[in-house]
Protein backbone atom coordinates (compact mmCIF):
# COMPACT_ATOMS: atom_id res chain seq x y z
CA UNK A 1 0.00 0.00 0.00
CA UNK A 2 1.16 3.43 -0.88
CA UNK A 3 1.53 5.90 1.96
CA UNK A 4 1.49 9.07 -0.13
CA UNK A 5 -0.47 9.36 -3.35
CA UNK A 6 -0.27 12.51 -5.42
CA UNK A 7 -2.12 12.76 -8.70
CA UNK A 8 -2.32 15.54 -11.29
CA UNK A 9 -1.15 18.04 -8.71
CA UNK A 10 -1.03 21.62 -10.03
CA UNK A 11 -0.21 24.90 -8.37
CA UNK A 12 0.12 28.47 -9.65
CA UNK A 13 1.55 31.55 -8.01
CA UNK A 14 -0.24 34.29 -9.88
CA UNK A 15 0.04 33.50 -13.58
CA UNK A 16 3.17 31.36 -13.13
CA UNK A 17 2.60 27.59 -12.98
CA UNK A 18 4.84 26.11 -10.32
CA UNK A 19 3.56 22.54 -10.40
CA UNK A 20 1.99 21.15 -13.54
CA UNK A 21 0.27 17.79 -13.28
CA UNK A 22 2.59 16.04 -10.85
CA UNK A 23 1.98 12.34 -10.12
CA UNK A 24 3.89 10.59 -7.37
CA UNK A 25 3.41 7.58 -5.08
CA UNK A 26 5.56 6.90 -2.07
CA UNK A 27 5.57 3.44 -0.52
CA UNK A 28 5.36 2.98 3.24
CA UNK A 29 8.72 2.98 5.00
CA UNK A 30 10.59 4.05 1.88
CA UNK A 31 12.57 7.15 1.09
CA UNK A 32 11.86 9.15 -2.03
CA UNK A 33 14.22 11.84 -3.29
CA UNK A 34 12.89 14.73 -5.34
CA UNK A 35 15.78 15.92 -7.45
CA UNK A 36 15.63 19.27 -9.21
CA UNK A 37 17.39 22.55 -9.68
CA UNK A 38 16.20 25.75 -8.02
CA UNK A 39 12.88 26.93 -9.42
CA UNK A 40 11.86 23.40 -10.39
CA UNK A 41 8.94 23.45 -7.94
CA UNK A 42 10.39 20.86 -5.59
CA UNK A 43 10.09 22.97 -2.44
CA UNK A 44 6.51 23.91 -3.33
CA UNK A 45 5.66 20.24 -3.77
CA UNK A 46 7.07 19.56 -0.31
CA UNK A 47 5.15 22.49 1.21
CA UNK A 48 1.94 21.19 -0.36
CA UNK A 49 2.49 17.74 1.13
CA UNK A 50 3.18 19.39 4.50
CA UNK A 51 -0.01 21.45 4.21
CA UNK A 52 1.59 24.91 4.13
CA UNK A 53 0.34 25.44 0.59
CA UNK A 54 -2.80 24.16 -1.10
CA UNK A 55 -3.37 22.60 -4.49
CA UNK A 56 -5.11 24.43 -7.30
CA UNK A 57 -5.97 21.14 -8.96
CA UNK A 58 -5.33 17.45 -8.41
CA UNK A 59 -5.27 15.57 -5.15
CA UNK A 60 -3.03 14.46 -2.32
CA UNK A 61 -3.82 11.59 0.01
CA UNK A 62 -1.92 9.94 2.81
CA UNK A 63 -2.78 6.39 3.87
CA UNK A 64 -5.80 6.61 1.64
CA UNK A 65 -7.20 9.70 3.36
CA UNK A 66 -7.64 12.81 1.24
CA UNK A 67 -5.45 15.61 2.58
CA UNK A 68 -5.94 18.15 -0.19
CA UNK A 69 -8.14 18.14 -3.25
CA UNK A 70 -10.61 20.55 -4.77
CA UNK A 71 -13.08 19.90 -1.92
CA UNK A 72 -11.09 19.34 1.22
CA UNK A 73 -8.02 20.66 2.95
CA UNK A 74 -6.65 19.10 6.13
CA UNK A 75 -4.66 21.39 8.44
CA UNK A 76 -0.92 21.03 8.54
CA UNK A 77 -1.13 20.27 12.26
CA UNK A 78 -3.51 17.34 11.65
CA UNK A 79 -1.55 15.65 8.90
CA UNK A 80 1.06 13.94 11.06
CA UNK A 81 3.88 15.05 8.85
CA UNK A 82 7.30 15.90 10.20
CA UNK A 83 9.11 18.71 8.44
CA UNK A 84 12.86 19.31 8.47
CA UNK A 85 13.52 22.58 6.67
CA UNK A 86 16.70 23.93 5.16
CA UNK A 87 19.19 25.02 7.85
CA UNK A 88 17.11 23.13 10.40
CA UNK A 89 15.11 26.25 11.28
CA UNK A 90 15.33 25.59 15.00
CA UNK A 91 13.34 27.93 17.24
CA UNK A 92 16.14 30.31 18.28
CA UNK A 93 14.60 31.09 21.68
CA UNK A 94 14.32 27.46 22.81
CA UNK A 95 16.98 24.98 23.93
CA UNK A 96 17.67 21.80 21.98
CA UNK A 97 15.35 19.90 24.33
CA UNK A 98 12.77 22.68 24.07
CA UNK A 99 12.86 22.38 20.30
CA UNK A 100 12.50 18.61 20.30
CA UNK A 101 9.76 18.75 22.93
CA UNK A 102 7.81 21.48 21.11
CA UNK A 103 5.25 19.10 19.64
CA UNK A 104 5.05 16.78 22.66
CA UNK A 105 2.41 16.90 25.37
CA UNK A 106 3.65 18.39 28.64
CA UNK A 107 3.81 15.08 30.54
CA UNK A 108 5.76 13.51 27.72
CA UNK A 109 8.58 16.03 27.49
CA UNK A 110 11.12 13.51 28.75
CA UNK A 111 10.76 11.79 25.41
CA UNK A 112 12.60 14.76 23.93
CA UNK A 113 15.75 13.56 25.68
CA UNK A 114 15.32 10.07 24.20
CA UNK A 115 15.18 11.52 20.72
CA UNK A 116 18.19 13.74 21.35
CA UNK A 117 19.96 10.60 22.51
CA UNK A 118 18.91 8.86 19.34
CA UNK A 119 20.50 11.52 17.12
CA UNK A 120 23.64 11.36 19.27
CA UNK A 121 23.13 14.66 21.09
CA UNK A 122 22.23 13.38 24.53
CA UNK A 123 24.49 15.85 26.31
CA UNK A 124 23.27 18.88 24.42
CA UNK A 125 19.73 19.21 25.82
CA UNK A 126 20.27 22.67 27.31
CA UNK A 127 22.22 24.16 24.43
CA UNK A 128 20.65 26.98 22.47
CA UNK A 129 20.62 26.63 18.66
CA UNK A 130 23.40 29.20 18.18
CA UNK A 131 25.61 27.11 20.48
CA UNK A 132 25.30 24.10 18.15
CA UNK A 133 27.22 23.38 14.96
CA UNK A 134 25.39 23.17 11.64
CA UNK A 135 25.34 19.38 11.70
CA UNK A 136 24.10 19.31 15.28
CA UNK A 137 21.34 21.78 14.43
CA UNK A 138 20.28 19.54 11.55
CA UNK A 139 20.15 16.50 13.80
CA UNK A 140 18.11 18.37 16.42
CA UNK A 141 15.70 19.36 13.65
CA UNK A 142 15.35 15.70 12.67
CA UNK A 143 14.82 14.66 16.29
CA UNK A 144 12.18 17.38 16.61
CA UNK A 145 10.34 16.10 13.55
CA UNK A 146 10.58 12.44 14.62
CA UNK A 147 9.56 13.07 18.24
CA UNK A 148 5.90 13.48 17.32
CA UNK A 149 6.00 10.07 15.57
CA UNK A 150 4.90 11.35 12.17
CA UNK A 151 3.55 9.19 9.38
CA UNK A 152 5.90 10.91 6.98
CA UNK A 153 9.02 13.04 7.35
CA UNK A 154 9.79 15.69 4.77
CA UNK A 155 13.34 16.98 4.44
CA UNK A 156 13.95 20.16 2.44
CA UNK A 157 17.56 20.37 1.25
CA UNK A 158 18.58 19.17 4.69
CA UNK A 159 22.30 18.92 4.10
CA UNK A 160 22.96 21.77 1.67
CA UNK A 161 24.31 24.10 4.33
CA UNK A 162 26.76 21.57 5.76
CA UNK A 163 30.34 21.38 4.62
CA UNK A 164 31.37 18.44 2.45
CA UNK A 165 32.98 16.25 5.14
CA UNK A 166 30.10 16.74 7.57
CA UNK A 167 27.49 16.27 4.87
CA UNK A 168 28.42 12.64 4.29
CA UNK A 169 28.31 11.61 7.93
CA UNK A 170 25.10 13.50 8.75
CA UNK A 171 23.47 12.11 5.61
CA UNK A 172 24.40 8.58 6.64
CA UNK A 173 23.15 9.13 10.21
CA UNK A 174 19.84 10.52 9.00
CA UNK A 175 19.32 7.68 6.53
CA UNK A 176 20.09 5.16 9.27
CA UNK A 177 17.72 6.76 11.80
CA UNK A 178 14.93 7.00 9.25
CA UNK A 179 15.31 3.38 8.22
CA UNK A 180 15.63 2.19 11.85
CA UNK A 181 12.41 3.95 12.79
CA UNK A 182 10.76 2.71 9.60
CA UNK A 183 9.68 6.26 8.75
CA UNK A 184 8.36 7.08 5.31
CA UNK A 185 10.30 10.08 4.05
CA UNK A 186 10.68 12.48 1.17
CA UNK A 187 13.88 14.44 0.71
CA UNK A 188 14.14 17.39 -1.63
CA UNK A 189 17.60 18.00 -3.04
CA UNK A 190 19.56 19.35 -5.96
CA UNK A 191 22.46 17.01 -5.19
CA UNK A 192 22.47 13.86 -7.35
CA UNK A 193 24.81 11.99 -4.99
CA UNK A 194 22.42 12.62 -2.13
CA UNK A 195 19.43 11.46 -4.16
CA UNK A 196 21.11 8.35 -5.53
CA UNK A 197 22.77 7.25 -2.29
CA UNK A 198 19.91 7.72 0.15
CA UNK A 199 16.67 7.12 -1.69
CA UNK A 200 14.67 4.05 -2.65
CA UNK A 201 13.13 6.00 -5.50
CA UNK A 202 14.09 9.24 -7.23
CA UNK A 203 11.76 11.70 -8.92
CA UNK A 204 13.38 14.22 -11.25
CA UNK A 205 11.41 17.47 -11.21
CA UNK A 206 11.87 20.26 -13.72
CA UNK A 207 9.58 23.14 -14.64
CA UNK A 208 6.92 21.77 -12.32
CA UNK A 209 6.76 18.39 -14.10
CA UNK A 210 8.08 14.97 -13.13
CA UNK A 211 10.57 14.10 -15.87
CA UNK A 212 11.43 10.68 -14.50
CA UNK A 213 10.48 8.45 -11.60
CA UNK A 214 12.42 5.31 -10.89
CA UNK A 215 14.84 3.53 -8.57
CA UNK A 216 18.26 5.22 -8.38
CA UNK A 217 19.84 2.43 -10.38
CA UNK A 218 17.11 2.30 -12.99
CA UNK A 219 17.20 6.07 -13.40
CA UNK A 220 20.94 6.07 -13.75
CA UNK A 221 21.22 3.26 -16.23
CA UNK A 222 18.17 3.94 -18.35
CA UNK A 223 16.89 7.47 -18.02
CA UNK A 224 13.82 8.12 -20.17
CA UNK A 225 14.96 11.48 -21.57
CA UNK A 226 17.96 13.75 -21.89
CA UNK A 227 16.81 16.22 -19.21
CA UNK A 228 16.40 13.47 -16.63
CA UNK A 229 19.72 11.93 -17.63
CA UNK A 230 21.50 15.28 -17.33
CA UNK A 231 20.41 15.54 -13.66
CA UNK A 232 22.46 12.44 -12.87
CA UNK A 233 25.96 13.32 -14.01
CA UNK A 234 27.91 14.22 -17.12
CA UNK A 235 26.57 12.65 -20.29
CA UNK A 236 27.32 12.58 -24.02
CA UNK A 237 24.28 12.90 -26.26
CA UNK A 238 24.91 11.67 -29.79
CA UNK A 239 22.93 11.64 -33.01
CA UNK A 240 22.89 8.06 -34.27
CA UNK A 241 21.46 5.76 -36.89
CA UNK A 242 19.68 2.93 -35.09
CA UNK A 243 19.61 -0.56 -36.41
CA UNK A 244 18.19 -3.34 -34.20
CA UNK A 245 20.36 -3.23 -31.04
CA UNK A 246 23.18 -1.23 -32.60
CA UNK A 247 23.66 2.56 -32.85
CA UNK A 248 25.97 3.95 -35.52
CA UNK A 249 27.48 7.19 -34.15
CA UNK A 250 30.59 9.38 -34.26
CA UNK A 251 31.97 7.15 -31.52
CA UNK A 252 31.54 4.16 -33.78
CA UNK A 253 29.12 1.27 -33.37
CA UNK A 254 27.56 1.23 -29.92
CA UNK A 255 25.59 -1.57 -28.32
CA UNK A 256 22.13 -0.50 -27.13
CA UNK A 257 20.57 -1.46 -23.77
CA UNK A 258 17.44 -2.50 -25.60
CA UNK A 259 16.43 -3.06 -29.17
CA UNK A 260 15.17 0.07 -30.89
CA UNK A 261 13.14 0.86 -33.96
CA UNK A 262 15.40 1.36 -36.94
CA UNK A 263 16.00 4.86 -38.20
CA UNK A 264 17.73 7.96 -36.86
CA UNK A 265 17.68 8.69 -33.12
CA UNK A 266 19.47 10.10 -30.11
CA UNK A 267 21.57 8.00 -27.76
CA UNK A 268 23.30 8.74 -24.51
CA UNK A 269 26.66 7.57 -23.29
CA UNK A 270 27.72 8.54 -19.72
CA UNK A 271 31.08 10.19 -19.26
CA UNK A 272 32.30 7.28 -17.16
CA UNK A 273 31.63 4.87 -20.06
CA UNK A 274 34.18 6.62 -22.28
CA UNK A 275 37.69 5.09 -22.08
CA UNK A 276 40.92 6.85 -23.13
CA UNK A 277 43.85 5.01 -24.76
CA UNK A 278 47.28 6.44 -25.58
CA UNK A 279 47.41 4.56 -28.88
CA UNK A 280 44.93 3.34 -31.44
CA UNK A 281 43.07 0.21 -30.33
CA UNK A 282 40.42 -1.73 -32.27
CA UNK A 283 37.20 0.25 -32.76
CA UNK A 284 38.73 3.34 -31.22
CA UNK A 285 38.14 6.94 -32.42
CA UNK A 286 40.92 9.52 -32.52
CA UNK A 287 40.43 12.63 -30.41
CA UNK A 288 42.35 15.50 -28.81
CA UNK A 289 42.22 16.56 -25.14
CA UNK A 290 40.79 20.08 -24.92
CA UNK A 291 40.66 20.43 -21.17
CA UNK A 292 41.53 18.28 -18.18
CA UNK A 293 39.64 18.91 -14.88
CA UNK A 294 41.37 17.16 -12.01
CA UNK A 295 39.26 16.14 -8.95
CA UNK A 296 41.70 13.87 -7.14
CA UNK A 297 39.79 10.58 -7.07
CA UNK A 298 38.80 11.13 -10.69
CA UNK A 299 39.04 13.66 -13.49
CA UNK A 300 36.81 15.01 -16.24
CA UNK A 301 38.34 15.16 -19.72
CA UNK A 302 36.82 17.37 -22.43
CA UNK A 303 37.65 16.09 -25.86
CA UNK A 304 37.28 17.04 -29.53
CA UNK A 305 37.09 14.30 -32.14
CA UNK A 306 39.73 14.45 -34.88
CA UNK A 307 37.16 13.62 -37.54
CA UNK A 308 34.30 15.72 -36.15
CA UNK A 309 35.96 18.64 -34.29
CA UNK A 310 32.55 20.22 -33.56
CA UNK A 311 31.36 17.29 -31.45
CA UNK A 312 32.40 17.71 -27.83
CA UNK A 313 32.85 14.54 -25.86
CA UNK A 314 33.31 14.30 -22.10
CA UNK A 315 34.95 11.39 -20.34
CA UNK A 316 35.40 10.60 -16.65
CA UNK A 317 38.73 8.94 -16.02
CA UNK A 318 40.82 7.81 -13.06
CA UNK A 319 42.51 10.66 -11.23
CA UNK A 320 45.87 9.08 -12.03
CA UNK A 321 45.43 9.55 -15.79
CA UNK A 322 48.42 11.19 -17.49
CA UNK A 323 46.31 12.94 -20.13
CA UNK A 324 46.93 16.69 -20.55
CA UNK A 325 45.37 19.38 -22.68
CA UNK A 326 46.59 19.10 -26.28
CA UNK A 327 47.38 15.35 -26.07
CA UNK A 328 46.22 13.05 -28.82
CA UNK A 329 44.12 10.19 -27.54
CA UNK A 330 41.86 7.36 -28.73
CA UNK A 331 38.37 6.69 -27.36
CA UNK A 332 36.32 3.55 -26.88
CA UNK A 333 32.96 3.12 -25.19
CA UNK A 334 32.38 0.52 -22.53
CA UNK A 335 28.91 -0.95 -22.01
CA UNK A 336 25.77 0.03 -23.82
CA UNK A 337 24.27 3.29 -24.99
CA UNK A 338 20.73 4.32 -24.02
CA UNK A 339 18.22 5.53 -26.57
CA UNK A 340 16.62 8.77 -25.39
CA UNK A 341 13.11 9.89 -26.20
CA UNK A 342 13.21 12.99 -28.38
Amino acid sequence: MSTIEISSASKHFGPTPVLDGVNLSVAEGSMTAILGSSGSGKTTLLRIIAGFEHLDAGSLSIDGIIMDDTNTVVHAQHRGIGYVPQDGALFPHLSAAGNVGFGLPRHDRSRALDYLEMVGLGGFADRRPHELSGGQQQRVALARALAVRPRVVLLDEPFSSLDASLRLSVRRDVARILSETGTTSIVVTHDQDEALSMADQVAVLSGGRVLALSTPRGLYTSPPNEAAAAHLGEINVLQARLENDIAHSVLGELALTAEAASGSGVVMVRAEQVRLHDHSVPASVAARVVQFDFYGHDALVHLALETEPDVAIVARVDGGSAARAGDATWLTVEGSAVVLAE
Partner: peptide, 10 residues
Protein backbone atom coordinates in the same frame (compact mmCIF):
# COMPACT_ATOMS: atom_id res chain seq x y z
CA UNK B 1 -16.28 25.89 -5.35
CA UNK B 2 -14.30 24.36 -2.56
CA UNK B 3 -15.49 24.04 0.98
CA UNK B 4 -12.28 24.80 2.74
CA UNK B 5 -12.01 23.37 6.20
CA UNK B 6 -10.76 25.85 8.79
CA UNK B 7 -7.95 27.45 6.88
CA UNK B 8 -4.43 26.67 7.81
CA UNK B 9 -1.11 28.33 8.12
CA UNK B 10 -0.54 32.04 8.00
Amino acid sequence: MRTVLPPTGP
